[in-house]
Amino acid sequence: MLLLAFDTASPAVTAAVCEPVGDGVRVRASVSSVDARRHGELLAPGIQEVVERSGAQMADLTHIAVGIGPGPYTGLRVGLATAHALAEALGIACHGVATLDAIAFASGRTTPFVAASDARRKEVFWARYDDALTRVGDIAVDRPADVDTGGLPVIGHGAHLYADVFGQDAAQAEPLYPDAAALGELAVRRLVEGRELPEPLPLYLRRPDAQEPGAPKKVRQWQA
């Protein structure tokens, strides 16, 4: 198994090549940069770079794992469109990993916590975890003040942005963004364990923002 992992559902653009080794996972190469406006420009060169640095060719890849969000939609779709087309062209399997799960996994925590990412519009995407590998329930989108943290520590970019609302030090929010090395390691582990991963489909959690128009605006000033 040689797995290409990447995620674009946060301000970070991150890619890695991973493989199972013994009981563990080896990350052959990884790259990350934070630039919320350039996902479309950075991802493909990033993938090319990690594949080259891992000493492999595109044709050697056997699996793709892609972050399915939730996260800002335009960036999220860069990763998914890339994953779908790569998998189709290479004829290999493509799986999804919730971006928040990758952040939680990278935290390495062994006790309960909450992970929260920035959902924009003064909201966060969030979920509770028993430990780094175990999410409890579904991911939700709420205003920070409405998140029931149960007094647990909160990690992720959402925790950093709203540290005052969550009543904790912003410095304790690490890791802020997903890292493809962690996402890939999580995916390899699950696949080796024979567990199912989500379909590579976007977690939007919100409907498109659009309003049906009313009657056309009048152009004449009506006489009283």
Binding site: H39, G40, A44, I47, M58, Y73, T74, A81, A89
Partner: peptide, 20 residues
Amino acid sequence: LAGALLVGVSAAKAYALALG
């Protein structure tokens, strides 16, 4: 449209990369 263009361009890059 920015978001619409990005889907096609991302897919096209992936095809180019995979096919060489």
